[in-house]
Write a protein that binds this DNA or RNA. Structure first.
Lengths: 196, 196
DNA sequence: CCTACCGATCGGTAGG
DNA sequence: CCTACCGATCGGTAGG
């Protein structure tokens, strides 16, 4: 999403950048307005509240992950292949939409309780997709006998953490990073190995 | 640290809880004062600014990790043993001091630039300790040839992420969690394995 | 440590 | 979309 033309989209775009750099609470509606050369109050011709803007950004990011990554969990390929592709696609989204992903991971907890609960549910659903692949891999002896939940959490922590250090001008492409992480975890999950 | 008696410590304690639950910017000095049954302005008999309180909490957490975990990197044990112990000790600190660790990971970026840079340095130093162990393990063929930086980042993301989901009343002890993660990464780093 | 206050800024609205 | 404003709250201070 580059330089959207619709005012509402411009607001989400500017807010995404500000929320990711300064945080939700340290960003004022006047900060957002200034980026669009508007007066503070003028924003309210397009939005209903500051929280609605956060909600929209967070929801879109959640949908991105759920729609583009989670379904891979239920394809018919071997578990290791599925897990690898989920890692690659997840990191592609994070690096592709670095600011919105940052807001999603960092600021969702400032939503009102009802909305926060909704995001918690979607995150649980997402984690469950990773857990399912690992469980199936274990069941089919494609993976060794690990705790599926802990392993899913480790993978997710690692791929989520990318937003904290990734820089587009860094030496490694998103795919290289993802393949490296996938190798690490797939080795770690490997069923057979010579003793150390 | 439970129920400190010194006023200044009580302030750090209350602020740690509030900052971790609501975030630094959404917590007012009056929120902190209320927890200690004080008036808002009375805090300033003990502190110089709200940011100083954040600084103290973040500094202490950083010191904890640097002093208790980083030195393990330079002991003379085999690299896999050192890495395992670093993971265990790191997670012990996170779970032991869940609120301060949360503030450390989540709110340090709201410090003024100079202090933020100082924390960035200390974090880099800490990451370097993990990287060093991995590099040495690779050099001695205790680990396979991985990218030491990416691997260090994966391990750190995973052990840092514990604060986001760990609950003291959960089914797994901090040590069990840590051993499970250590197994996963040590398997992933293993030098020899039968091809998959 | 309290009372009482400072100027600044907050999210949001009315009326045009 | 602007002007002008609302009440509330912010971090912090003076004086006791």
């Amino acid at each position: 999403m580059e330089q959207p033309t619709l005012r509402k989209e411009q607001i989400y775009f500017a807010a995404g950048g500000l929320f990711s750099r300064k945080g939700y609470h340290a960003t004022s509606v006047r900060d957002i307005a200034r980026e669009l050369n508007l007066q503070g109050g003028s924003l309210y011709a397009h939005i209903e509240s500051k929280e609605d803007v956060l909600w929209e950004i967070v929801q879109r990011a959640a949908s991105e992950f759920l729609q583009q990554v989670a379904p891979i969990a239920d394809e018919r390929a071997p578990a290791p292949d599925r897990l690898r592709r989920m890692i690659v696609e997840h990191i592609r989204i994070v690096t592709d939409r670095l600011e919105d992903a940052t807001v999603f991971f960092h600021e969702w907890r400032f939503l009102a309780p009802e909305r926060r609960d909704c995001i918690t549910l979607r995150r649980d659903e997402y984690e469950a997709a990773f857990r399912r692949v690992i469980e199936e891999g274990v069941a089919r002896s494609e993976f060794r006998a690990v705790d599926p939940r802990l392993t899913a959490v480790a993978v997710l922590s690692t791929v989520n953490g990318v937003y904290q250090w990734y820089r587009p001008d860094g030496p490694l492409s998103p795919t290289q990073i993802a393949e490296s992480f996938a190798e690490l975890f797939l080795h770690g999950l490997q069923a057979q190995h010579t003793g150390g």
